[in-house]
Design a protein around this nucleic acid. Structure first.
Length: 292
DNA sequence: ACTCGTCAAGCATCG
DNA sequence: CGATGCTTGACGAGT
């Protein structure tokens, strides 16, 4: 039977703790960045406590941990001032919490954009994400997860451009992981890209159900060899437009996903619960598992 | 003291 | 062509 370790992201269920505190860009100054950072740091530590109490094995740190860090107006020497705090935090995580930390930059990070400025901004944003994880001193299993990007009416061309751009900035391969999305790039397409680039594939069950393709989950897990425990995402449909995440995870979705995972014979996976009610959703799921 | 619209960034889809 | 979905959170204007 597969051991499934769970993960949550960015905030707790009532929103009282968040690693995404920010401010308005027009007020950008070192002081404002530092102010938000301190709140994010404080909340992050509380969230790590929460994860430890509830035996949560993965946490996704919010991209706004240091707000506007990749913005052109963010001055270069500001980041150096944060360095000692991040290093200290990294030590604490290693000694006290022993949790896997990952990140997932926003939808604006697009490595296959034909627009040079978009690509440039994306690279800068990824540099910032890598910087954080490197200074934290987390292992290579601390991945930075992105989607493939746009199709621009020529999906094959868009895939080639993604591969070319990652090859061009090959340092990205150290932490970059890619995920199938709910509309454009199916799991089958993402697997091909992951195999070509030799980077891990974060399989998203909900996106796969909305954008299905023929896949071999075992092959998807193989992209993780030497890169840490395979990571997957689980969410269920919410009210509103297709693709919206639900407040909780549908138990049937979990059961069929678990069956799919177990059929590969894998020993251990990390499952990120992408539900709006975060640890409450995980609690509900675990309660159902106990009574099941 | 509150609610509401807007905010750095891209893309595709739906009406 | 404008609103919406994607980690939502902050905050100033209006009530």
């Amino acid at each position: 039977m597969t051991d499934i370790g769970f993960g949550i992201f960015c905030t707790n269920s009532d929103g009282s703790l968040s690693t995404n505190h920010t401010f308005r860009l027009k007020n950008l100054s070192f002081e404002r960045v530092f102010e938000s950072f301190q709140i994010n740091l404080r909340d992050f530590l509380k969230l790590l406590e929460l994860c430890r109490e509830r035996n949560i094995e993965v946490f996704r740190l919010g991209s706004n941990f240091i707000p506007y860090a990749s913005h052109v107006d963010f001055e270069e020497d500001w980041l150096r001032k944060f360095e000692p705090y991040i290093i200290e935090l990294g030590k604490l995580i290693k000694e006290k919490f022993k949790i896997r930390i990952t990140m997932h930059p926003g939808q604006f990070v697009i490595l296959n954009s034909p627009n040079f400025t978009v690509l440039e901004n994306s690279i800068r944003e990824l540099e910032y994400h890598f910087w954080i994880l490197d200074k934290l001193g987390v292992e290579d299993d601390g991945v930075v997860i992105i989607h493939i990007g746009g199709a621009y009416g020529q999906k094959e061309r868009a895939i080639d451009r993604f591969i070319e751009n990652v090859e061009k900035h090959s340092w990205l391969k150290r932490r970059l992981a890619i995920e199938n999305d709910e509309r454009l790039f199916s799991a089958q397409e993402v697997l091909k890209i992951a195999e070509t680039l030799r980077i891990p594939f974060v399989f998203d069950f909900f996106h796969h159900s909305l954008n299905p393709s023929e896949i071999d989950l075992k092959k998807i897990f193989e992209t993780w060899s030497g890169k840490g425990i395979p990571k997957v995402h689980l969410s269920s449909r919410g009210i509103g437009k297709t693709g919206t995440h639900g407040d909780y995870v549908n138990f049937e979705d979990f059961l069929s996903f678990r069956e799919m995972i177990e059929s590969t014979g894998i020993e251990k996976v990390h499952m990120m619960i992408e539900a709006k009610r975060k640890e409450k959703a995980l609690n509900k799921l675990r309660n159902l598992l106990v009574s099941d």
